[in-house]
Nucleic acid binder design. Sequence first.
DNA 1: GCCGTTTTCGGCCCGACTGTTTTCAGTCG
Length: 626
Amino acid sequence: MFGNGYARELAVTARLRDAIAAKGKSATPLRATARLQTLAKVADVEGHLGSTQGLLNEDVIDIFNEIADLLDISGANPFRIRAYRNAARTISAMTEDLRSFLTRGCDPADLPGIGRDLAGKIQEIADTGTCALLRQVRDEVPGQGAALMKLAGLGPRRVRALQRELHIASVDDLGRAAREHRVRLLKGFGARSEQRLLQAIQAQMDRNRRFNVDVAVRTAAPLMQHLRENAKIAAMTVAGSLRRGRDTVGDLDIVATSAVPRTVIRALTAYPMAQTVLSAGVTRASVMLSNGMQVDLRVVPAADYGAAMVYLTGSKAHNLALRQLAQSMGLKINEYGVFRGRSKIAGQDEASVYAAVGLPWIPPELREDTGEIQAARDGRLPRLVGREDIKGDLHIHTRDSDGLASLEEMVQAAGKLGLQYLAITDHSPRMGMTHGLGAQRLAVQAERIDALNGVGGMPWILKSVEVDILEDGSLDLPDTVLGRLDLVVGAIHSHFDLSPAKQTARILRAIDHPHFSILAHPSGRLLGERDGCRFDVPRVMTALAERGCFVEANSQPSRLDLWDSACRMAREHGVLVSIASDAHRVADLDNLPLGLTQARRGWLEADDVLNARELPELRRLLRRTM
DNA sequence: GCCGTTTTCGGCCCGACTGTTTTCAGTCG
């Protein structure tokens, strides 16, 4: 998915910064990024942004993971295997382009989990595009071992057995063998595992499907209600990626506490939407719902609830780091609590678990092992922006273009939500299908806004427009028209597939426009439908900062654009973020928390958020000085 | 293969569930 893959191309993470600082080297990401941008400015734009940017990171991640899978199948030292996986994870947490990292003279061996050997392999991949060890292990493990490993239910041992005994090289081979009932003849396999493998092959074909967060919420709510009504539950919460606020959700993780766990397990397996029961034990069960979403349920005693919540909220990387920290203190963390020897010292609530390892409670949105544990240790955790900090909404449509409610209805609804101000941002003329507004209709709208503002008792209405950024970077309305507005929100709605160089130049030109205020949904991605456009994000952030402009975190569940790491990059560049609903109807105003969550995942505090400002301060900030 | 409040060797996160076994290995989260 665009958000995850592309996020890897962005700037230096705090984890990286911490790791380098811990090793006694000084490296401020801002300075590093600035240097990079200087290089970019002098370089030929097309050349700089050509085919290599970010691809090295992907290459190294793929190669290290494949080496790990193949070593696993060949029965290598498990800790050597883990080293490759850890290194791949470190690279995927990097948001700077690895090639520019090397160009700047930085040493990958300074990164956590990467030593001299793997640093050498990274350099080898940078130089040659591949790695001798990969070729070697591919020779030793013939066939598509790595592809087989990705099937649910197949690990290294069983892949090895399939390859050795049945000469199965590919997923297709496996499907054939399973249908011919040859797999069940192997030791350790039976008719049931044969059936499951066929299901796994089918599931893999259906997969790569993650759910937008609104779908996940709409799936979770009735399920939770069903469980409450049909089982004796003392407390229950959704954990996993939904609780961490990921932009998309793969499955639902639910943790519940009950004196009679069996009732909860039974209630889940009896849920009408549960199509297949994948597993059901005494304390844990998994089902596949009819909409294709998997639910993993864990039932624990009240005394273990906090530990189970930490465990099931994850991320896996965060939990690993937490356990290692515990271990270094002579403690053990599992889903039942924190233990010193046999005695349990914490676990009832999450705060006690963190406190046991000397940390303050860490908000779920930060639990990705991207520097939050070190920040918590140092007392540097951000005070994340909350719903109560949001004073207004700077991206709202009305019936005048493609909205479904009138200006008056949107303003009243914003007032009911306690907002102090809102910006009306209907589309510009180029967006023909949205009935976009030209100069004349904008002037009429402005009169109605003046009249409403004159009445008072409602949120202050700012005059604005969502002006189309045309292919060449010019704006879809004349200067004279834009100059009369309180702010100008600019967005791309076409030509998403320009080369990164052209896309970057297009956006930079738009930002240069004297009346430009906020870059809205910058990538234009539609989750699960359309990848976003590709552009040089650090460069655009730098330009926004230099011009006194802002960037939007769009709250539509199918957009969530900016994504988390780009929000973090905005903060690092000193660009204030407008967390906006992009509402086209009254109900859409309630989407604001979704964008807010991405902002929180990007470590944003209230000070980093444009619409956390009071109106007078907002007005001051909107006055362009450059 | 990495790493050091166990510091250049000897460790490396932890437990539930499934299927195939008949006491447990393999897989998964």
